[in-house]
């Protein structure tokens, strides 16, 4: 088991956003977190990293309780967080953005450039000057440089052109092929259907549905919960 969340209540200030969430990600599995705007997907991913307030419940990674660990320790243990708003360091070059994240393992600058040649072409460009698609590639690549053992991907396709979405899908499938477990927050059902094995559907901070991705794709409640 890569990640096990039990009875999680989390939110901001005094206000819980998530109520009693239970969720699992097994080794090698891509799990989607579906739900419309404001359902609590981002809050859940941030709670795993310890970036929002957790009121109660448990977040265990490979059997180890994370709740009291600082953010950098969670990352060092193998959690790789890719934020929905990308958060590229704007004044650092593409290369520097990658190098600040480097931790020992399979992924290094050379491997990243082989996987995403576009990043090599723009390696001396400042992060703040990239297009949306380039930034999205860089934010994923930067997290890969930490050599994560579990990837937390928050809406990687948001606001991107269909061609770029295809590229992200290829990238995610490649990582999946290497056995990297992924927790993926998404609203794009087509993309999610291409890459995910299982899914949880959130509504107002609670898990309404869970199951195999293939089954969920054809269920009408899912479309309703996503307000499609």
């Amino acid at each position: 088991m890569s990640l096990r969340i039990e009875g999680l209540r989390a939110g901001y200030g005094e206000i819980p956003v998530l109520h009693d969430v239970n969720l699992e990600v097994r080794e090698g599995e891509v799990v989607a977190l579906l739900g419309r705007n404001g359902a609590g997907k981002t809050t859940l991913i941030k709670a795993v990293m310890g970036m929002v307030r957790v009121f109660s419940g448990s977040v265990a990674y490979r059997g180890r309780e994370l709740i009291h660990l600082p953010l950098f320790r969670r990352a060092q243990l193998g959690l790789g967080y890719v934020p929905d708003d990308r958060r590229i360091f704007p004044e650092l070059t593409v290369r520097e953005n990658l190098l600040v994240a480097q931790r020992p393992g399979r992924w290094n600058l050379e491997q990243i450039y082989r996987l995403l040649p576009r990043l090599k072409e723009i390696e001396h460009r400042k992060g703040g000057l990239l297009s949306g698609g380039e930034q999205q590639m860089l934010t994923i690549a930067r997290t890969l440089m930490t050599n994560p053992q579990l990837l937390l991907l928050d809406e990687p396709t948001e606001g991107l052109a269909p061609l770029v979405v295809e590229e992200i899908a290829r990238l995610v499938l490649e990582l999946k092929g290497e056995g990297l477990p992924i927790l993926l927050a998404e609203q794009n059902l087509k993309f999610t259907g291409q890459v995910a094995d299982r899914a949880y559907v959130l509504e107002t901070g609670e898990v309404r549905l869970e199951g195999e991705m293939e089954d969920l794709l054809h269920r009408e409640e899912v479309a309703a919960l996503l307000a499609l």
């Binding site: 990293m49 970036m51 600082p70 953010l71 950098f72 990352a75 060092q76 967080y81 934020p83 958060r87 360091f89 704007p90 004044e91 650092l92 520097e96 190098l99 600040v100 994240a101 931790r103 930067r142 997290t143 440089m145 930490t146």
Partner: peptide
């Protein structure tokens, strides 16, 4: 480079495993 990155986004730097 870490110090410059911290100037731009401390929390993100820490999320990448740097002991901020």
């Amino acid at each position: 480079a870490w110090i410059r990155a911290a100037t731009q986004d401390r929390e993100m730097l820490e999320a990448l495993g740097v002991n901020v």
